[in-house]
Design a protein around this nucleic acid. Sequence first.
DNA 1: TAGCTGGAACTAAGC
DNA 2: CCGCTTAGTTCCAGC
Length: 761
Amino acid sequence: MSSGWEEGELDFKLIFEEEQQHQDSTVSDSQLTSTLSQPMGILPSPPPSNHRAGMHSPPPRRALVREFSGTYESLPARSVQVSESRVLECPSIQITTISPDDDFTPEGGTYWDRDRLYLPLLDPYCYRDSSMGAGSLSPSPASSPSSRGWLSPASSCDSLLVEDEELSEATTHFCLSPSSRPTSPGGKKRRNSPLPSPSHSRRGSYSEEHVQFLDTGDSAPQSQGQIELSIPQKTRKTSLEQVSSRDVELEQIPAPNTSCPPSDLGQLRREPPTLGMDYLSVPNTLGWGRTRASAHSPIFRSNALPPLDWPLPCQFDQYELRIDVQPRPHHRAHYETEGSRGAVKASPGGHPVVKLVGYAERQPLSLQVFVGTADDRSIRPHPFYQIHRVTGKMVGTASQESMQAGTKLLEIPLNPETNMTALIDCAGVLKLRNSDIELRKGETDVGRKNTRVRLVFRTHLPLAPPLAPPGRVLALQVASQPIECSQRSAQELPTIESISITSCLVDGGVELLVNGSNFLPTSRVLFMERGSDGKLQWEEEAHVDRDKSTENVLCVRVPAYSDVCVSQPVCVCLYVTNGKRKRSSTHCFKYLPMLCKEEDPLLSRPSLLLLDGVMPLCPPPHSHEYSYTTPGGYHDEFCPQPETSEDRGPVNECDPSFQSLELGFSELLPPLYPPHPWPDSPYLSSSPSPSHSSSISPFPSSPVSTSPLPPPLQSHGPPAYHQESHMTFIGAPPMQHITLDEVNEFIGEDIRMFHTDSRPV
DNA sequence: TAGCTGGAACTAAGC
DNA sequence: CCGCTTAGTTCCAGC
């Protein structure tokens, strides 16, 4: 599933030089000149990441030219000397300008012949860098597909000029302008041709219709022209894969609003011609299991905001981004050929609610929302889904769309007046055709049965000393529970929304209630355990008490574990199946050793085991219960999907969350690094991330604060310095998507790099 | 009328 | 290669 990219394949370099950014503003290279002259987006753009949408961004690395304050940016691939003292990494592209007199297709200004993609001369201000890190806001309210045009004046090089105060301004003056265009897809379309997708789609696809500029992920020369491509018609699709929908949305759209300084309001803008993978074969970034991004700090320079595929914590210091109301587990996404299917709704009705806790400033902030993956890998933008801005009289939340590295974002204000709470009633989900996405070069994910998504929320807080040096921003992210977006799956697949208990002694026998939907009289509940190699080691069916079960509740008796003599807690998974290939996602369950209760004094305090402090009405013996639905996260993703994990090779056998991290990982951890007052580098392997720092405990007032606590990582990362504990932490923020293998790898790499960094140079 | 929603037909891929 | 099943995509109809 992963790209297979190995560390050694990461060829491009990442450099960062703050001081020279200004000096180099007169870069002679045409690729930079026009870019540098561009107006800023509302948010400073992080450096180009050169990655295609859906690909993992490379983690930042130390500056090659000169280290500066330990901050890192990823920059484009190939080296271009832009000044005597500075070398930028830029993609190699071939672009030939053509005159405005040349013919173009009326719709998009581009056309294909066998060998070339011709791009029209465009307003030099009109381009978009699809790789821009923190994309600038587009004024276009249009949503896909009616709003494919994302123009962003921001570019990779813009980010080099972004000053800290700009971020502050951006966050302060997050302004929303009313939409001048409808955002929903333009209603139903008539079939006019039976030609099947994808090769002869009856319509242009998200990729095909809109553009078709190749995404370098960098600021390509802003002069327009023709890009040399070897694109035999027969392989048009293959060629177009470079022109992925997410990379190359292009359309004429109105001039931007205040977020984008006007150039010529009457002039249509267009993305810059960029070139894709043919010339810049950017590796599929880090293999998900290898990324160390999780180890970085959530604090970034304001001009180096993290890419969307970087895992971020949901909590840092007193700040926490949390989901107060989770979305429903089902939401039928709409295709481009359909009308909007509305905004994602919440289970109790209404819509999801997201809140930033601990923020007492008066400055409003912006909450970014995008559609992320929901597999057992780290959260990243979902290649087959995009966020869709829903408008209408029923939508009360203002929002703006933007693009970041090919991923559409909604930006929603977080205002102090509303207690930094946002009602997410404007976020729909657009489904892109699998065939369109899968043909993109470098795309390794398959769309088939890849229909679970999450809503991912991210915000950036400007931090002031003493929390961080000036100009630093704190990036927090939280992801919703998985959302099934397929109509069919939503109708057929059983879904577990909660379970009444999450652990009991190994002898089982405890009654457990599974709450969810699509349960049938024939539904079965199975407990299973996988080995570290991902192979099924044990599976046992739980007896279902049909009399006590309904279509939304299954009452089962927990089966005994295979080995009642275990001395350590055992994490297993349970799922509901309605038959072959109709399985729910898995939820974690822990078997506790028989002696555990006597040996572990903490277990004698069952209240400490309650997540969210919700005491069950009738706690059964031998069990530890908690309210399943945690506000800030979801446990479901911790377990591999039973229907797919078997094909994935080694996977974590179960919950790689804190619960599973408890299981004997502490002895693998490297020595405690000396704490930093704040992280200079988000990627210093030899220094602890804030989450590692004991001085920044995520749970300052935790009732179990006497025990070392896990990091406040919502996303995966190395296990923190909690030792010994074999219990579930109260209020522990969920750690998502970390597998046993990842943990081991993180640890091993940390140890290696620690040793390396410790050596005198 | 446009947008939202549920349902189902049609089609391709997989088995 | 064929038939069945499954899943993705598109269209229709009702509200």
